[in-house]
Amino acid sequence: MSARKRLLIVFHTQSGNTGQLAKAVLRGAGRVTEIESRLMRAFDAGVDELLNCDGLLLGTPENFGYMSGALKDFFDRTYYPCEGRLVGLPYAVFVSADNDGTGAVREIGRIANGYGWKCVAEPLIARKAIAPEHLAAAEELGEAMASGLAMGIF
């Protein structure tokens, strides 16, 4: 029997909006019992967690058209120790934004490209106040990612 695949959800929240999305992503992923899902704040996640995951969901608020400093810190701390070791890792992004969120998505994508990761879902951008439809979309994202890992799609 093979070990269960692991989904790592790394996020930062200041106002609580991205935290709401992260919890919804975890709820959705939790529907797929074949996958072990772990939710971690960006400042708490590190090299060990990243190297031991089979899929990654990244959550951030949009700050000045960019990702949060905490998520950037996660990348800064993990890039060189993980360089070349996670090529093809499936990932997706969720963003809470007062503006359009595309700057944060773009810059995360550039960094993920440096790691060699593979984006497997359209980014979820929750604009303005978090609404029930944003939470439903976040649950769907978590479930889809976990399902894809469980079925070996990615």
Rank of each mutant, 00 (worst) to 15 (best):
L56R: 08
A22G: 03
Y91R: 04
Y79F: 14
L39D: 11
V10N: 05
L26M: 14
G84N: 13
T102N: 10
A104E: 10
V32Q: 06
A24P: 08
M67Q: 14
F43Q: 15
D73C: 10
A97I: 01
F74V: 09
K23I: 02
N99W: 04
E62T: 15
T18I: 14
E34D: 11
G30C: 11
A104R: 06
I111D: 09
G88A: 07
R110D: 00
A104I: 04
Y80V: 00
F74T: 04
G101T: 03
P61S: 07
I111M: 14
G28P: 06
F74C: 09
G103W: 08
I35M: 13
D54Y: 05
G103T: 12
V47L: 08
N113Y: 07
R77S: 03
E49Y: 05
C53L: 10
F11T: 01
L39I: 03
G59Q: 13
P81H: 12
F43P: 11
C53F: 05
T102Y: 07
L50P: 02
Y80M: 14
V10E: 02
A22E: 00
L71D: 04
T78F: 05
V10T: 04
G65N: 07
G84T: 09
G109K: 01
T13C: 09
A112G: 00
F64P: 04
N113H: 07
E34S: 13
A42C: 03
G101M: 08
A97E: 09
A22F: 05
A112I: 01
P61L: 02
E34H: 06
E83I: 07
T33C: 01
E49D: 15
V105I: 05
G28M: 13
T102E: 14
V25E: 10
I108K: 13
F75S: 11
L86P: 06
H12C: 06
N52H: 14
Y79A: 00
T60G: 07
G16I: 06
D73W: 15
F94G: 10
R31G: 05
L71K: 11
S37R: 12
V47R: 14
